[in-house]
Nucleic acid binder design. Structure first.
Length: 470
RNA sequence: GUGGUCGUAGCUCAGUUGGUUAGAGCGUCAGAUUGUGGAUCUGAAGGUCGUGGGUUCGAGCCCCAUCUUCCACCCCA
């Protein structure tokens, strides 16, 4: 026993072989679908400059950024450590006591771990704009980090699988993203619901009720409709400073928040948002998208949910969220359109839209519903039992030959007791073992043992290969 | 960040009102059994009871702090 117990940071996890096999199954499924729709892979660094990250996710997002401490003795360099103990600071000419977190921050950290894949992607697009073929369809599967407090379906390190297309306004892209989600979840055997909304509709509602500047506050609160209820929403809006008249004007929308029938809610919105051109534009977009989707065979349902606000601050148009059926879990996939994310980095007028699959939540949902196929545990097909040095030498070329034929094979690395070696095969669920001792070597034959039935037979290498190939 | 919750052997968990040397099952290792496994039997190893303080003659048990787990809020995949 070591002196101190090792551990890993809060909200992070190790993945053991069984978990990895299952996670790879999810990643492979997703990756295949992305490629099927013509998307290309990229990767970006785990860390970005804080200037890239800060201010893109809202105030809350900034707090959840993992920041990386500068290397070197930055205290010494800033003159914060004085010989006489006076510890005066050169930062903005302020005293130690006047220093707060925000003032200090830029001096001790300038890098952070990525918070999502969309913002680094926008940065990437701007930096590589001359080599990119637009519209650029890319996918990216990498971990992201958030300094959140862990809970159900929430980790501090988790994988996102992003697909985005940038450089095209077409709503065809939105339609395609829904199709991608459909294909991924259908292939994984997951039942799902796609929820759609549009920031322009939300903006229109804010405008119509007389709170044009309150869109963000409104949407965040509206999003709680599903979890809580109307009274809660009204109370919270009042706390956020919405006028009574505005809240009264909002009431009809709240009443329709639960309405899922497009034939009912679309006409309702058209009437009630007629005074807002932006709101009407949003309705129009939703109508076009759902119009296309009607003709496609999707395995899940698609709904317009005007209480859906999810997504980060940079979304400007369509908002997409996918929830798993039959399991209480946050969204397992989400995204939307962002009209000017690259604008912040100096490339104006380029619109993008994308969604992100939460691999870890998908894993949790599939685990809970027992949706992982049994077969994917298979690794080694045949184990060569080790009887000693002479036998090892005899077996190695045979092993190579098997591997050449694409049969995963291994030899036990020590001439341990047979019991131990067979036990190893059992525990690793290796279906066959090969026993080669003096007799077999003399005859140039192999004894193949079926670990399930216990049956064993003397055969040639070719016969073994034939049997393994099945 | 706020509120609650959990932590005893590798794993799952007992542990009485605060009382001598902290237990069980599973797993591991060794042997019964030196080329035939999954079974059975025998034996062994394995613990600063999350960590640090405190109360007490005495703490796994009570108090405080801290870390971790899980859950809710905020927010989000």
């Amino acid at each position: 026993m070591s002196l101190q117990k090792p551990s890993i940071p809060k909200g992070t996890r190790d993945f053991s072989p069984l978990e990895m096999v299952r996670r790879n199954y999810i990643f492979d499924t997703i990756r295949k679908v992305f490629q099927l729709f013509g998307y290309q892979p990229i990767e970006t660094p785990a860390m970005e400059n804080l200037s890239t990250l800060l201010g893109k996710y809202g105030e809350e997002g900034d707090k959840l950024l993992f920041k990386i401490l500068n290397s070197g003795d930055f205290l010494e360099n800033r003159g914060w450590r004085m010989e006489d103990g006076s510890r005066r600071s050169e930062v903005g000419g302020r005293n130690e006591e006047q220093l707060d977190y925000r003032t200090l921050l830029p001096f001790i950290t300038e890098k952070g771990l990525r918070y999502d894949l969309t913002v680094p992607f926008a940065r990437y697009v701007v930096q590589h704009q001359n080599e990119i073929i637009f519209p650029f369809k890319r996918y990216q599967i990498q971990p992201v980090w958030r300094a959140d407090r862990p809970q159900k379906g929430r980790y501090r390190e988790f994988f996102q699988c992003d697909v985005d297309v940038i450089g095209s306004d077409s709503l065809l892209n939105e339609v395609e993203l829904v199709q991608i989600a459909d294909k991924v979840f259908t292939n994984l055997g997951l039942k799902y619901i796609v929820k759609l909304n549009n920031r322009k509709i939300l903006s229109g509602i804010a405008e119509v009720i007389g709170e044009p500047g309150g869109m963000i506050d409104l949407t965040i609160t509206l999003d709680k409709m599903e979890k809580t209820h109307m009274d809660f929403v009204i109370t919270e809006l009042r706390e956020k400073g919405f006028a009574d008249a505005s809240i009264d004007a909002l009431a009809p929308f709240l009443n329709f928040a639960a309405e899922k029938d497009l034939a009912v809610i679309l006409p309702f919105l058209k009437v009630n948002l007629h005074a807002s051109s932006i709101g009407l534009a949003g309705i129009d977009e939703i109508e076009k998208i759902t119009g296309y989707l009607q003709d496609l065979q999707l395995s899940g349902s698609v709904e317009l949910d005007i209480s859906l606000a999810r997504g980060l601050n940079y979304y400007t148009g369509t908002i997409i969220e996918v929830k798993a059926k039959d399991v209480p879990m946050g969204s397992i996939c989400g995204g939307g359109r962002y009209d000017d994310l690259t604008g912040i980095f100096g490339l104006k007028g380029v619109s993008g839209v994308g969604i992100s699959f939460g691999a870890d939540r998908i894993y949790d949902v599939m685990n809970e519903l027992n949706l992982f196929p049994e077969m994917i545990a298979a690794t080694t097909k045949v184990l060569f039992v080790n009887f000693g040095a002479a036998e090892e030498k005899f077996c190695l070329p045979i092993l190579s030959s098997l591997r050449e034929s694409g049969i995963p094979a291994e030899i036990f690395p020590e001439a341990a007791k047979l019991k131990k070696q067979l036990d190893y095969a059992n525990r690793k669920k290796i279906p066959y073992t090969v026993l080669v001792g003096e007799n077999e070597m003399k005859e140039g034959m192999l004894t193949l043992k079926d670990m399930q039935t216990g049956e064993q037979k003397l055969m040639t290498l070719e016969q073994v290969k034939e049997k393994m190939a099945k």
